Measured scan of single mutants.
Amino acid sequence: MAAGGDHGSPDSYRSPLASRYASPEMCFVFSDRYKFRTWRQLWLWLAEAEQTLGLPITDEQIQEMKSNLENIDFKMAAEEEKRLRHDVMAHVHTFGHCCPKAAGIIHLGATSCYVGDNTDLIILRNALDLLLPKLARVISRLADFAKERASLPTLGFTHFQPAQLTTVGKRCCLWIQDLCMDLQNLKRVRDDLRFRGVKGTTGTQASFLQLFEGDDHKVEQLDKMVTEKAGFKRAFIITGQTYTRKVDIEVLSVLASLGASVHKICTDIRLLANLKEMEEPFEKQQIGSSAMPYKRNPMRSERCCSLARHLMTLVMDPLQTASVQWFERTLDDSANRRICLAEAFLTADTILNTLQNISEGLVVYPKVIERRIRQELPFMATENIIMAMVKAGGSRQDCHEKIRVLSQQAASVVKQEGGDNDLIERIQVDAYFSPIHSQLDHLLDPSSFTGRASQQVQRFLEEEVYPLLKPYESVMKVKAELCL
């Protein structure tokens, strides 16, 4: 049975990233139509530049190519590739079939990587351009969430054990800070992308030097003109047959890092959902379990974690691919890159769409948070109580021993009897502590235990987050809708 299948058929496997999760716009960027249309555009740009620099290419040939950029006979191309065992030459023939007058000058002087690699770089750039505003929107939604809850005390956790208090907004800023680093890295790697350009079979530009009869300047002009037509500021000066596969490492490393950030955020949300302090959106008709109707599973956060793990592992592909590119190139890269580049971007696209949807509907339960604080705060307040007693004339050592005994009794009630923490009640009825009984409410005010959390939130948002989001103001209103 021949390899390949009808990918629109229910009898043929289709990647869930495309069929179930990723956005239509990201799927289109990695589609065959987008790819092969870009090949034709690159052939047109090459012909236009070659004509401008004096090669015998007519206006009629150029116009014929322009008129057929979208006229792609995919069936013919597939048949040609089956016959020739070469995808680029299959599309040269297919393009030439609908451009008979231009057929002889299509791909003039070029090698397969002229269309293959340059198209990949265009796709990487455009895919990054799709991700950047999506990530900015996630940051914006979380920034709104953090600002609104900047002063809401909550129990902090280290080692997932109760620690000092923080605020809900401050905790959210930990998430935002990681995503801001990801946004900066995505922008950097996007701006650092260079075009492969017009380089020939081993990167020496020998074929173009021959076409222009040894004119170095025209060869350099050709490279520059096509690079500018493709919208790049610069091209690699040095290439082998391909652009260095280190570029793929750079791009997928940034995406993998984004995956790590999203995994951490969504894990926190899942843990908070278990504590009943916070939940992701839950639709009115949504079913959490087929057997347990009360369940409210954090399905979206779980999906993000599941896909983020996949995204983090994909960076190993370009690392290994770059390491086995012998001399000017081997074909070890080809099949692998067809999979890992598309999957990385479709996965990143999915987790950003999902995280935006989550961040637009996060639900906080202040009463649950308050109750958990009441359970733990008495123990945390013991040092403040000791200091207040010393100020009232008591002995630190005597007070410490009193607190120690009462704390152990209260802990026994919590752990052995399943009761509430009654340390404060014990202190309130103990005559030894009568000098500070009137101060206990103040000493137990949760806001006095959150330090500068709310001020940190305000400063972080104003100095770091809002300036970073400013270039994306025009796209901030787009909502994230999930079908599944």
Results as ranks from 00 to 15, higher is better:
residue 291 A to Q: 03
residue 258 L to D: 01
residue 89 M to V: 05
residue 76 M to G: 13
residue 380 M to C: 04
residue 91 H to M: 12
residue 370 E to V: 08
residue 409 Q to N: 11
residue 401 E to A: 15
residue 398 D to S: 12
residue 171 R to I: 00
residue 256 A to I: 00
residue 187 K to M: 10
residue 247 V to S: 11
residue 206 A to C: 12
residue 13 Y to H: 08
residue 332 D to A: 00
residue 113 C to G: 14
residue 345 F to I: 10
residue 78 A to H: 09
residue 102 A to R: 00
residue 391 K to G: 15
residue 235 A to N: 14
residue 310 H to Y: 08
residue 291 A to D: 02
residue 236 F to W: 14
residue 141 R to H: 15
residue 398 D to E: 10
residue 2 A to P: 11
residue 394 G to F: 11
residue 351 I to E: 04
residue 319 L to T: 00
residue 209 L to C: 09
residue 88 V to C: 05
residue 400 H to L: 05
residue 2 A to V: 06
residue 365 Y to T: 07
residue 75 K to H: 12
residue 22 A to L: 10
residue 219 V to R: 04
residue 381 A to D: 08
residue 348 A to H: 04
residue 326 W to G: 04
residue 235 A to K: 08
residue 150 A to Q: 12
residue 318 P to F: 04
residue 421 N to A: 09
residue 399 C to I: 12
residue 448 S to I: 15
residue 338 R to I: 02
residue 467 P to R: 09
residue 48 E to G: 05
residue 372 R to D: 03
residue 205 Q to W: 00
residue 388 A to K: 05
residue 118 N to D: 02
residue 281 P to N: 12
residue 412 S to K: 14
residue 170 K to V: 00
residue 310 H to R: 14
residue 278 M to Y: 07
residue 259 G to M: 05
residue 61 Q to Y: 10
residue 20 R to S: 00
residue 426 R to L: 07
residue 100 P to V: 11
residue 61 Q to P: 04
residue 50 E to T: 09
residue 368 V to S: 05
residue 87 D to H: 05
residue 337 R to C: 00
residue 227 T to S: 13
residue 204 T to D: 04
residue 94 T to Y: 08
residue 412 S to P: 05
residue 116 G to H: 04
residue 392 A to H: 12
residue 171 R to Q: 00
residue 114 Y to C: 06
residue 154 T to R: 00
residue 294 Y to I: 01
residue 331 L to M: 06
residue 449 F to K: 10
residue 458 Q to A: 13
residue 463 E to K: 11
residue 130 L to A: 09
residue 420 D to R: 04
residue 19 S to T: 00
residue 321 T to C: 11
residue 312 M to P: 03
residue 460 F to D: 01
residue 261 S to M: 02
residue 6 D to K: 13
residue 257 S to C: 09
residue 212 F to W: 11
residue 127 A to E: 05
residue 382 T to D: 02
residue 287 I to S: 06
residue 83 R to L: 12
residue 77 A to C: 10
residue 448 S to W: 11
residue 247 V to M: 12
residue 351 I to T: 14
residue 447 S to G: 13
residue 78 A to F: 09
residue 158 T to H: 00
residue 83 R to E: 13
residue 236 F to R: 06
residue 68 N to V: 09
residue 112 S to A: 04
residue 70 E to Q: 11
residue 148 E to G: 11
residue 256 A to E: 02
residue 193 L to Y: 07
residue 166 T to L: 11
residue 284 K to Y: 14
residue 244 T to M: 05
residue 113 C to I: 06
residue 233 K to H: 09
residue 185 N to F: 07
residue 201 T to L: 01
residue 81 E to K: 00
residue 289 S to Q: 00
